[in-house]
């Protein structure tokens, strides 16, 4: 009774999450060991065939491509986002406030619509093609879509704020007297950055990399719309198993492996960081 009294307020929320996150996740693990009937329904017969199929070279290469793309995206976002966050932290207060507000607005603007904007820019006869033609770089209308680099570029663009915000939060917290001390002791700009800024913002980097990496592994509409049929990534493969291919047990096995790998990655990165992305809010 005392237990109930203590926990009553939190109970509905945690029950909700347990029923709609906990149980479904356990269920996909169960499902991943079941078989698919010829009519596309699930047969309750134990098998390891779904996991066996993941070791198939085609599936392995999709896994490699997806995780590779996510790593590449994180690296690009870090290269572009770190200097941005660092520079913003050095701005005066008022300007910094406006930059952060506009960053948040961009961050919460529909990702589908922003992807659509890129389609208008990159498509054949699109904005970029027209601009290049006018500048004389190209003679005929060109298309910049349907390629691996274009998928990476748009994904990086999409998740850039996820990198900037945690890094900014970490850099901003650094005590400015540390820089003064470093300069006073004769260190130059580069050395101060390497010895003070970088180590003290490592938690922000780890948080940012995690926040960019996780969603970019599973994303499917950017690769679908920008990459087209040529770039099959994990998100699209899983989605296909759910509707057109109708092989739910295989879809479940793919999800389990993907979640496991993502989980390992997150545990590894967050062990480097104390900041768990709270800065996003």
């Amino acid at each position: 009774m005392a237990w109930l009294k203590r926990n009553i307020a939190g109970l509905p929320a945690f029950l909700w999450m347990a029923v709609l996150v906990g149980i479904p996740l356990i269920y996909i693990i169960v499902l991943s060991f079941l078989t698919r009937n010829p009519d596309g329904t699930v047969g309750f017969v134990f098998t390891l065939a779904n996991y066996d199929r993941i070791t198939d070279p085609v599936t392995v290469s999709i896994f490699m491509d997806s995780f590779g793309a996510a790593l590449l995206t994180s690296a690009c976002a870090l290269l572009i986002g770190y200097p941005f966050a660092y520079f913003v932290s050095r701005l005066d207060k008022k300007l910094r406030f406006y930059v952060l507000v506009f960053l948040m607005i961009a961050f919460w603007t529909s990702s589908l619509i922003r992807t659509y904007g890129w389609i208008i820019i990159l498509q054949t006869n699109g904005v970029l093609s027209g601009l290049f033609e006018r500048l004389g770089f190209i003679k005929e209308p060109a298309r910049f879509m349907y390629s691996y680099p274009s998928v990476i570029a748009v994904t990086t663009y999409m998740f850039l704020p996820f990198m900037i915000l945690p890094v900014y939060n970490a850099v901003e917290k650094i005590d400015p007297t540390l820089y003064e001390a470093s300069y006073d002791l004769g260190a130059g700009k580069v050395k101060t950055f390497a010895k003070i800024t970088l180590p003290l913002s490592s938690s922000g980097i780890a948080g940012g990399v995690t926040l960019v990496f996780v969603p970019s592994v599973g994303l499917y509409f950017i690769s679908d719309l920008i990459g087209g049929a040529r770039t099959m990534l994990l998100g699209s493969l899983i989605k296909n198993q759910m509707d057109s291919a109708r092989n739910w047990p295989f879809g479940a096995a793919l999800s389990v492996v993907m979640l496991g790998l993502v989980g390992l990655f997150v545990v590894f990165y967050l062990s480097l960081a104390k900041d768990n992305g709270e800065g996003l809010f």
Binding site: L20, V21, P24, L25, Y27, I28, L31, V214, P215, V217, G218, L219, Y220, G235, I238, K239, M242, W248, G251, A252, S255, M258, L259, V262
Partner: peptide
């Protein structure tokens, strides 16, 4: 990841 939550909920 969104896709996994979606798949789990659908199932």
């Amino acid at each position: 990841p969104e896709i996994i939550l979606g798949v789990a909920l659908l199932m």
